[in-house]
Design a protein around this nucleic acid. Structure first.
Lengths: 340, 340
DNA sequence: TTGAAAGCGCTAACAG
DNA sequence: CTGTTAGCGCTTTCAA
């Protein structure tokens, strides 16, 4: 493979000027006279010059690249987040190196390693649900490569985070449900090894407490964040003949799992059992019944985290880690409407 | 930003050997004795050495990186494809540079430009629905950067493509529908500017012909591939009081648009109007009614296209462009089951 | 088995 | 305004 591409040198020779002049001209450096600059640009265009970003990165020690580590991508929340991240980063003139850990801590580690090796300027990461090894984050820190954690963050002091108000969201949802007549609540809680799991449980419990409803521990079922978990948890309660009136599902897939299971055993939603979940996707509108949810605005998450990351990249002296919390809102559709 | 990282030089100095020895040892070059190699590796590990992939790329003229250009990402087909691409490429030791064109031809162009500037080893692209400017693909070709087109491909000779059997898929679906009693078919066809649109129309027409059913031209409605298009097309027919019995939707979002519109005006699916679409997502199972579809296997698409791309990268002498076609299969759920 | 020389394409100082 | 001098960190001949 030897794509013989045009280099600065080729342009310089052709024009009888120095490489530096060409380099500066092309980058719009104020040193160069407009006349020369225009000539250089014209020639570069004619020759079909494409800058070699690799060489530029090496020389300038700046890659204008952000590494993104996501636990999954074929999941609406993450693909939507990715979309926003990509678009916003692009508008800020950063390229994105995408990496998917598949909820695997080991992979996550090697991926960060790779991203560091690629000399990304910063890393944006939503950690796996079972991340327990934080050493790699320390390594990145030592290398002075800024990391911003989004949505799923580690239990660490002094790190930059952008999260949604999970606790408040859960609280809001339960509160709403109480208002419309519900009294018996379960929470399919995902993993409490991770902040979003813990926070949502906290909000759930507090809402019950504040409404004078007793928290029943076997109605808080931990699992993970996918369909199967919702399905299994539902079946467990169903088989024990211990179904609540309302389930707060920790994610949209978990809610889908509940839909699956309920359909299978002939429990009607929302008449016999009602559901609300974290995470919005417009197809929820077309489920039967249309699924209500706690919306986590991915556009704001993306913007805030990229802004934060770039600000750290641009200003490495930056001392105080920041924690940005983004608000949620309730989207009420065909579930969690009124107690029947 | 000066992350003072450990370099080969540091290791070499510490060990009193040359840089080259270290470089070779670390890459497992057979030149080096096992003893030296082990010592070098140990030291590298202790020092926390991370290779600088940028420098390596520059020196070796190989980035081990594949650029991916997708028209959208927050769409199940593409996020699922991306997931598979990422996973498979990773297993082949390639990193992924993701880029999203947002169905915008200009953006697509600059993104390919950027990818070329980043010296990716190859490009995997699913083009925008209105791509009419093919010059950029020629540029890439001239630069000897291999391109593989996936799913959405340009109308060009001599390019490498991996597609699904769109025509066959449409044919299969309509044929099935005829068998269960349908006679009046519409096709919400997306854009015929792009292969997938054209092929699906072809399959649709041929199936009707082969079954002796007349093709009604105003029942083939072009638009694009998103919800709104399905919604609008439905409304058009509804307002003209000219609804068919069955609609073949060109994508899953278009089908969702039909669901939206039908719900709005009180047309019952599948009793009064039936729907089937291209593209599978497990949530279709939970729509009301569960949506049947023509499945496009993203795992196979990803594997085939990465394999093809890497084979071209590894063997640039490669002459004959290849066209791989992947089979579809019908997934029948709650629609397109039986004519009521 | 090891290393010296050369350079990938570009940019950052600084000097003219 | 333009150019010179030095690399960035690594790999590739090719010689020792």
């Amino acid at each position: 493979m030897k794509p013989k591409s045009i280099t600065l040198n080729d342009i310089a020779k052709k024009l009888g000027v120095s490489i530096i002049t060409v380099s500066k001209a092309l980058r719009g450096h104020p040193d160069i006279s407009k006349k020369t600059a225009d000539l250089v640009k014209k020639t570069a265009y004619e020759l079909g010059y494409t800058p070699n970003l690799i060489a530029r990165s090496l020389a300038s020690r700046k890659s204008n690249t952000i590494g993104v580590v996501l636990p999954q991508i074929a999941h609406h929340f993450f693909s939507s987040l990715m979309d926003q991240i990509y678009t916003y980063a692009h508008s800020k003139n950063y390229a994105i190196f995408l990496t998917v850990s598949q909820e695997n801590q080991m992979m996550q580690r090697t991926q960060i390693q790779t991203l560091l090796a690629m000399r990304v300027d910063g890393i944006l990461i939503s950690i796996t649900q079972d991340t327990s090894d934080f050493e790699i984050f320390e390594i990145a820190k030592k290398r002075e490569v800024p990391i911003v954690f989004v949505d799923r963050i580690p239990n660490l002091k002094n790190c930059n985070t952008v999260t949604v108000d999970d606790k408040g969201g859960a609280y809001k949802a339960i509160n709403h449900a109480v208002k419309i007549g519900y009294k018996k609540f379960a929470h399919f809680a995902g993993s409490s090894k991770i902040n979003i799991g813990r926070e949502r449980i906290l909000g759930f419990k507090q809402a019950l407490n504040d409404n004078g409803i007793e928290v029943k521990n076997n109605w808080i079922i931990e699992g993970d964040f996918v369909e199967k978990s919702g399905y299994d948890s539902f079946m467990k309660l169903f088989n024990e003949n211990d179904l609540p009136e309302m389930i707060l599902a920790v994610t949209y897939p978990v809610a889908i799992g509940i839909y699956m299971a309920a359909k299978e055993v002939g429990i009607k939603i929302p008449e016999e059992l009602d559901v609300i979940c974290f995470g919005n996707s417009h197809v929820q509108e077309f489920l039967s019944p249309p699924l209500s949810c706690i919306n986590q605005p991915t556009d704001i998450l993306a913007k805030q985290s990229i802004d934060l990351l770039i600000s750290i990249i641009d200003n490495s002296e930056n001392v105080n880690p920041q924690s940005v919390v983004v608000d949620t809102d309730l989207i009420i559709r065909g579930t969690c409407v009124i107690k029947k």
